[in-house]
Design a protein around this nucleic acid. Sequence first.
DNA 1: GTCTATAACGAGATAGAC
DNA 2: GTCTATCTCGTTATAGAC
Lengths: 246, 246
Amino acid sequence: MTSVQGARARARIEITAAIKDEARTQLAAEGAARLSLRAVARELGMVSSALYRYFPSRDDLLTALIVDAYDAVGAAAERADGAAGPDDPIGRWTAVCRAVRDWAVAHPHEYALIYGSPVPGYTAPQDTVGPASRVGLVLIAIARDALAADGIALPPLSPELRPEAERLAADVAPDLPPALAVTLVAAWSQLFGLVSFEVFGQFNRIVEDRDTFFTSAATRLAHEVGLLPRTKRPARTRTQPRTGRA
Amino acid sequence: MTSVQGARARARIEITAAIKDEARTQLAAEGAARLSLRAVARELGMVSSALYRYFPSRDDLLTALIVDAYDAVGAAAERADGAAGPDDPIGRWTAVCRAVRDWAVAHPHEYALIYGSPVPGYTAPQDTVGPASRVGLVLIAIARDALAADGIALPPLSPELRPEAERLAADVAPDLPPALAVTLVAAWSQLFGLVSFEVFGQFNRIVEDRDTFFTSAATRLAHEVGLLPRTKRPARTRTQPRTGRA
DNA sequence: GTCTATAACGAGATAGAC
DNA sequence: GTCTATCTCGTTATAGAC
């Protein structure tokens, strides 16, 4: 009986994956706003009502695609961080930035789904906030490790910004100095500004050698955050980025 | 006969404006991907075929909306720059950044149209590139004036980036040092990273006091570009941002 | 229990005849 | 410009296959 259950479960997983794959194809062709359950079903040789066994509504399918996309960039960022030398904060930082950009360039439509215009009529459920925070948590972990190993120069903090910095730090990274936490959030959004401009075509006829341009800008972001070229004494343990999911 | 022609021309302008207004309303409700000529016509009490007298296709209507949006942010940026003290590069820079952000927050759907995900199936014609460059040209003008008045410290330029920096500078700002030109382009995209994250909801539950946060980040961007708090001798003439349109 | 298929709803888009 | 016949869509109810 386990084999029957196993077979069913396997079939379910496969069909779910096929649905999402086909939906991703449609995403590329039509955009998220025009994602159609019926078209997905038609393309898979199913009838539209059958899809409801797998996704209770169109918005749930969208949510699954969004979560998958956030998880994919997040995993790419974590992998790049893990592959970089632990004692080299700037190396880790730029590796993560490049991983995010490479993923975005390779998956422009999924990138647009999560970092582009919001889908009209769709409101993201709570399920997306965990995956959405993975890239940010990697950046925070890099800063945390650098801090523990004297590999960071704290960025300046203006008095006007101090209250918000403290509030924000308490929320997203209670173990980091407020000045570092706000700067990280700003750098995080600026990183995606670079990526979005490239993916969305704003650099057309302006930036040619995008690779070099991006790497240079990412490195400058690392300096902006205060990361130093090399830690004086290596951090003993590398901080695992917390998943952010309950 | 001029009066008849004048009346006709006036009516045409009014109807064109009404069509665009209604289209903007639909943009907010349905998104650019679902902009429908028929729905616009219906709402205006016209028949869909009548719209083709004003816009030869859906894409042309979209283009008009895009050009209007770029012109609106561009004008806001130019106005803010003009209102700032000419001898204060950082003041001008942050004023322009704030103007862009304020416009974006006030017009999130038009902002999404020009700086969000590309509309599937739509390719921007040449008409959009002039208006699209207005904000960038304002930032360039600020840097140019600061340079002329000794109000800027040239940002560093890594050897790897030099070729691309020279290419890029020749294209977008031939009178600026390559190091400054690339840094400006990076800062330009990072500015829109900050704005997009706020408008698209990525700062939800993360940044609370968005005003202070943004102003602080914009000021740091100004420093990043090399702008100095005050020019030693005031620039005699303020550079007009070139319109970029032929 | 788990799935798929049929049929239908209300709403909207689309094409073409008039 | 109007009308109509025919599409699409998301979603549900129901019935039957495994």
